[in-house]
């Protein structure tokens, strides 16, 4: 596999990275696990790569109410973290295989915005904020379409932040992986807060099966104020159909659009069940 010719620059700071991309064009290089494959297949020819891999944007910090994950934090680090909400560590742990998790980064994953990626779905459900060199973007506004985000040309993600998970809140990520690539064919993320035996807050997202991850507001609406038992969870999960436009659902040889649609409610329910069991 031989990519087309490109120039290589290594940035010493986020600002320098931005300046290098502005000057030479091209792309940021983080873990390289989405970018290099498309270059090797000659589907991308960025001309220049600005390596951001050594910038100080790696690691997870928590201040009690919130958790910040540096853009260069690897999936393996997120998977091993006890500070991030369970849904996030669970999703990171289900990405690819150990090699991918040790190289791939949170920033690269969401900047690439592959429809089959796991992190966009979770970050939507966790109402995360994406921080760049110039601004902060709510996850709801960040993912625009297939391989398309709200990032401007040359804008660099520096970190992602989410609220810490309180004891009465639980979250989970349930995934139907593509058997070959292990990317998500259906991924469901849920976070629920329980007060006095009923659902005080619910946040649910579904991805993998549509061009971009989608908030499952019908499911959320069906949960809030309800006692969380098997019947209410099943009924709420079934409502995900209302959040999906059947014409939008992707299909391939591994899973047709029809099958994915049917699996959406199954995996939303599984995510909800796990989230509820984790909220004490």
């Amino acid at each position: 596999m031989y990519p087309p010719k490109f120039d290589y620059y290594r940035a010493g700071s986020p600002d320098e990275a931005v300046a290098l991309v502005q000057e030479h064009g091209g792309k940021f290089l983080a873990g390289g696990h989405s970018l290099i494959p498309v270059m090797n297949l000659r589907l991308a020819d960025p001309g220049a790569l600005v390596d951001i891999g050594r910038l100080d944007m790696k690691g997870i910090s928590s201040n009690g109410s919130g958790v910040t994950v540096g853009a260069l934090t690897t999936h393996a680090m997120v998977a091993a973290s006890g500070d991030v909400p369970t849904a996030l560590s669970e999703a990171a742990g289900k990405i690819g295989d150990p090699q991918v998790r040790n190289r791939g980064t949170v920033g690269g994953n969401i900047a690439h915005a592959d429809p089959a990626s796991d992190l966009p779905t979770v970050l939507l459900a966790l109402r995360a904020t994406i921080h760049t060199n110039g601004r902060s973007i709510p996850a709801d506004d960040f993912f625009v379409d297939l391989f398309t985000t709200a990032l401007d040309e040359g804008e660099i993600i520096t970190s992602v932040s989410v609220a810490s998970e309180a004891a009465n809140t639980g979250s989970a990520y349930a995934k139907l992986p593509n058997p070959a690539s292990r990317y998500a064919m259906v991924g469901a993320a849920a976070q629920v807060t329980i007060e006095n035996g009923v659902c005080a807050a619910a946040s649910v997202a579904i991805g993998g099966l549509t061009p971009k991850a989608t908030r499952a507001s019908s499911v959320e609406a069906a949960l809030v104020g309800q006692p969380l038992n098997s019947a209410t969870l099943t009924a709420a999960a079934a409502a995900v159909t209302n959040d999906l436009d059947p014409d939008d659902i992707l299909g391939d040889i591994h899973a047709s659009a029809d099958y994915r649609q049917q699996m959406a409610s199954v995996f939303v329910r599984r995510a909800l069940e796990a989230a509820v069991s984790r909220a004490s």
Partner: peptide
């Protein structure tokens, strides 16, 4: 060949 890479050919 739809299964021309290991992204689609399941080993």
């Amino acid at each position: 060949l739809v299964t021309g890479s290991l992204l689609d050919y399941t080993m």
